[in-house]
């Protein structure tokens, strides 16, 4: 069950901040431009300053998302970090495996669902050649922090929906609605300039979120969810 005390929280400022944070890092404003990938990319041979700039954007994004989450739950931190039992750990491992499988399925779907636009890959980190290990690491760290930041915003929305719709009267129907809305929002938030297909993201990334949301629902422990997410991303990135 969700903590009823969360109902007393004024959610709007936190949801607004989360939205603006996403928008700030996904519009061509001067500060985001500074953190962006320059064309053509150059990461090796001592271009430390470029690497630093390239990583600092997602790290700041992740840090602000964490701060918004912390401020939101400051008065009631046990909602964020509940004690977890061994049963929840095993459940977490199982859900992590399911998330990986769903993500792989998503990758398969990505290639099937048609897209109507393309973008210039020259400017993107995906264009780094696989044997440029330094660049590959930079890409991984960048994606990891971006992913964790987005994950925190998704969780905030999920907790908000649980609080609003489930605290007084809970039903399976309401839970399904909460999951559907969160999946759609998750697809929206993962829609970026390098991955601009909303519908495809809802069906791929959004659906792969389900195990992570279940894990939060069962554990009420955000760090555990983020760790599970990090494990998923690492395995997918390096082995799939």
């Amino acid at each position: 069950m969700i903590d009823t005390r969360l109902n007393k929280l004024n959610w709007l400022p936190f949801l607004c901040c989360s939205w603006l944070l996403y928008l700030f890092f996904n519009t061509k404003n001067p500060i985001n431009n500074f953190f962006a990938i320059q064309n053509p990319i150059q990461l090796d041979s001592g271009q430390f300053s470029d690497t630093f700039v390239l990583l600092s954007g997602p790290i700041i994004y992740c840090a602000i998302a964490g701060l918004i989450m912390y401020m939101c739950f400051k008065a009631n931190l046990e909602v964020l970090i509940s004690r977890i039992s061994w049963r929840t750990v095993w459940l977490g491992l199982g859900l992590t495996v399911i998330r990986i499988l769903l993500s792989i399925l998503g990758i398969v779907f990505e290639n099937i669902i048609p897209t109507f636009h393309s973008y210039n890959l020259d400017a993107s980190l995906e264009n780094i050649l696989p044997y440029e290990i330094h660049g590959y690491w930079v890409q991984f760290i960048r994606e990891l922090f971006t992913n964790l930041g987005t994950q925190m915003i998704i969780l905030l929305v999920f907790i908000y929906l649980l609080t609003r719709l489930m605290s007084r009267k809970s039903s399976v129907g309401r839970l399904v609605v909460i999951y559907v809305i969160t999946i759609i929002i998750s697809g929206g938030l993962t829609t970026t300039a390098t991955d601009p297909y909303l519908l495809r993201n809802i069906f791929t990334t959004g659906i792969a979120e389900i195990p992570i949301l279940i894990l939060y629902q069962k554990s009420h422990n955000v760090p555990a969810v983020l760790i599970a997410n990090t494990i998923c991303l690492s395995i997918l990135y390096w082995f799939v």
């Binding site: 996904n26 061509k28 990938i37 064309n39 109507f116 636009h117 973008y119």
Partner: peptide
């Protein structure tokens, strides 16, 4: 302001219609 002044997207990633 962010959407209409600066436009959605990321610097240097250019959207084009398919070829």
């Amino acid at each position: 302001l962010l959407i209409f002044k600066f436009a959605w997207g990321q610097f240097n990633i250019h959207f084009t219609n398919s070829e």
